[in-house]
Design a protein around this nucleic acid. Structure first.
Lengths: 344, 344
DNA sequence: CACCATAGGGTATACGTATACGCATATTAT
DNA sequence: ATAATATGCGTATACGTATACCCTATGGTG
């Protein structure tokens, strides 16, 4: 039953010193109730003294559970540059923290949307499940998601939570956020409110935000002018271009709701260059509350998402899914951060 | 020798179908030269057809190599909030990319400086090596690094590259960067240049930047006034406080070199509130070129570090260290980005 | 007092791969 | 022609853990 201690301690070494068999060590350390309190205490003491840690590979191989989650970021617009949407980077913190709390490791990878990431982590037994983060063309995305569902891969994604969303989705209450933004702009007396952001089903989250805006306008007896909606992806350049197109459009407006802070920041630059005063001539609201939002001039009113809650919810939902537990779809409330760009 | 194909394909399944033994499959897929070209081609074809992927756990267990690196972020000043220094977050992109390129997975974890991270990944065989990223009190840090060295843990860290630095260190040429900043400020006619950032050996990188500044001043026949150096850690609040202290100090100055952009941004706020005009009254240079640096008013002149190169160098150096190859210490050149805050 | 449940822990083995060896056959040198 | 290599692959086994199964000593139950 025994063999003397060797270089890197194994469960056999512990067993030898404790005068028990290796399986008993395994049981004791894993918390099985079929080992006496005294034996367990003794084993734990020895393990601590030897600085023993369970070999992750052997454990995973045998149990077929890795206790590791994989986080896949993807972005299409950045071919080489390492720019990731700051919003998702911020979420990284809470995700890692939640993983740690649950005793899971986090494997991370950046992917181009067009890559075969949907099959990469498929099954090399690296992780028990996948967290998907990123904006992108939803139609392309959708096909890959369906593939994941077909393969019965455990995953959760951040996005628009609607009835037809594929797989397990967690997201902010984008419609509610749109309503918040719209109500605030109406409250400060604005009537012609533009929306910058793709409102098609290629970008369901943006679409939801626009829907919310329209709903708020309707509630105030106003209607959203389609001429005041301009497509934009989440980048400063795109926001700049969209705002210019809006100005060139001829339809006057006194407020902008941008689907993301990056879009808003680009738009502010275009408006300022056009000689407009913010927020006097045009009030503006962004989305995400990235760090830069409080550094613009004027500082940017924006919708803050619950990052901490998001990370926790993503991880918990995925773990529930892995355990086969029922997991109800849920949305997170947002908060409007009022700054100078809407201060009348 | 054979056994029929089962659920999730293993090397035995491939072997069965190819009419060879399991070890031959392993050899073929790992590129051993002791397997004929024909056999290898056949095995690879079958593997592709079955969508076979090597089981990472079994492979790691047997070979004692995980082909995974662990990235440890740590920050002390943020007890709960998920704020990471934006600079390090940006580096994340190039690190993951380089890992992918080298065929390594990346495990990520955020740690509080005071935690026992130096022993956590010690040896649970999760990763082959560790990348350490983060500022922090160097004296605390140093003790843990020494522990890692004692344990013969393979690691690389980002920091000040000096002769007495512990373990394998990769970093920017901070002294050279300080010289660049100093020369630029002198070139635009500034003579009384303040430095915001801890210049003690608790923060060797900041110390190096200050050393560079002093060197540039000396070269111009000027001397650095110790009264114009104020300690600050890398945060906006700290920069704000340091600038206020500087103003209260009574010694006049016409330029500031801040040890980080966050410090610079905080300082700009303090200066503006004090009624000073930037850059007319005080020119200012930051460090890191975080996204926010181009959004401040005036936009911030700063020192850009080579993030892409940094990520590549960190990974490559660590892999060389793991392979037991000799690895020479090396520093990365920096680039001064001139913006409005030093535009006379 | 025979009977069975339970606690506590040992025995044997599987997880899927990589590698040390050995053994043919084919190739070259002498 | 025979000994010395080399090539290509099979055999056996180890990596370190978790779990199914079995066994023994109790203690309670009728």
């Amino acid at each position: 039953m025994g063999r003397p201690p060797s270089a890197k301690p194994t469960s056999f070494d512990i067993a030898y010193l404790a005068g028990v068999s290796q399986p008993t060590v395994s049981r004791a350390l894993r918390g099985s109730k079929s080992v006496s309190a005294a034996t367990r205490a003794n084993i734990e003491r020895i393990a601590r003294e030897l600085n023993y840690t369970v070999d992750k590979n052997a454990s995973s191989l045998r149990s077929q559970r890795t206790h590791t989650l994989a986080l896949l970021f993807f972005e299409d617009p950045t071919p080489d540059q390492s720019m990731i949407n700051p919003f998702f980077l911020s979420m990284l913190g809470s995700i890692t923290r939640q993983c740690a709390l649950r005793g899971y490791d986090l494997l991370i990878s950046f992917q181009q949307m067009h890559n075969d990431w949907h099959v990469a982590y498929q099954d090399s037994h690296r992780s028990d499940g996948i967290i998907l983060l990123g904006y992108g063309d939803y139609q392309t995305y959708r096909a890959k998601l369906e593939h994941l569902v077909d393969m019965d891969t455990k995953f959760v994604r951040w996005g628009s939570v609607s009835d037809d969303s594929i797989g397990l989705t967690v997201g902010s209450d984008n419609i509610g956020a749109g309503v918040q933004a719209g109500e605030h702009l109406v409250a400060i007396g604005r009537r012609a409110i533009a929306f910058l952001g793709d409102a098609s089903d290629h970008a369901p989250e943006f679409q939801d935000r626009y829907t919310g805006l329209c709903r708020a306008l309707a509630a105030a007896g106003l209607t959203a002018d389609p001429a005041l909606q301009r497509d934009a992806v989440s980048s400063e350049e795109s926001g700049y271009a969209a705002a210019q197109a809006l100005l060139a459009g001829g339809t006057s407006f006194d407020a902008i709701f941008a689907a993301s802070d990056l879009i808003a920041i680009g738009a502010m630059r275009a408006l300022t260059e056009a000689g407009l005063r913010l927020p006097h001539d045009v009030a503006i609201i962004g989305f995400d509350d990235i760090p830069a939002a409080s550094l613009t001039s004027p500082t940017l009113t924006t919708v803050m998402q619950d990052l901490k809650g998001a990370g926790e919810l993503l991880v918990d939902a995925l773990l529930a899914r892995i355990d086969g537990a029922p997991v109800e779809r849920s949305v997170l409330p947002t908060r409007l951060i009022k700054r100078q760009s809407t201060a009348v």
